[in-house]
Design a protein around this nucleic acid. Structure first.
Lengths: 105, 105
DNA sequence: TGTAATACATCGTATCACGAAGTATATAGC
DNA sequence: GCTATATACTTCGTGATACGATGTATTACA
């Protein structure tokens, strides 16, 4: 997918990836892969950003002798998803404008 | 609309604004306004970018004693719109992922 | 006379996705 | 034991780009 198009989707996608259960970086990438691909450097940047924005909280836990950082969505994060749904109406209207075929010619 | 979300839409929107008839900067902004707003500095940057990419051609014409730059879409520009339509399927799939409500809990 | 609308241009800034590179452990195959 | 692959997270530099601020001009209208 075009990188510019991704910009508006990635943040909310990552939030969606943890909205039903806590998850961690590596798993988030794999879960999102069928829908939208992103590199590790991109994801970890996003996770940090969303945490700073209070949209998720982190806890570190050991798993098979390795540390994992589990992310949990907050109420603010859920609100972001709801806002996105509202914004989607505008997106659809833009899409209609783009594909509209005028016939005044 | 969120600035990040706009990034994937603006270029193709500007192309759509001239796809049925040649237009110029000031008019493009007004035509797009009901769907998506953008500042003049943004538009003129986009116009230059799309011209460099061979998606539109320009001609300068006088109108009421003032110069106007009229933009015309090229075949490459029309192809860009068609690509966007194809990409839209992916966008919809991402949207479905975001709004999906799992019930395995 | 002055104020808004029309019309285009340039500059600096902040945001952000990405590739490259690095660190470290676990596991499976040979 | 050794090697490759998967897992897991981090940092750094770069390029793309939307925007506000600012500037230049002309026309139209009150």
């Amino acid at each position: 997918m075009d990188i510019q198009l991704k910009r508006g989707l990635l943040d909310v996608c990552v939030l969606a990836a943890i909205k039903n259960e806590d998850s961690y970086g590596y798993k988030i990438i794999k879960d999102m892969k069928p829908y939208i691909e992103l590199s590790e450097s991109t994801l970890y940047t996003i996770l940090k950003r969303l945490e700073s924005a209070g949209m998720m909280t982190v806890r570190t836990a050991e798993h098979d002798g390795r540390l994992r950082k589990y992310y949990r969505i907050t109420e603010t994060g859920r609100k972001r998803i709801e806002e996105f749904k509202l914004e989607w109406k505008e997106v659809i209207s833009v899409y209609q404008f783009v594909i509209k075929e005028d016939n005044h010619e």
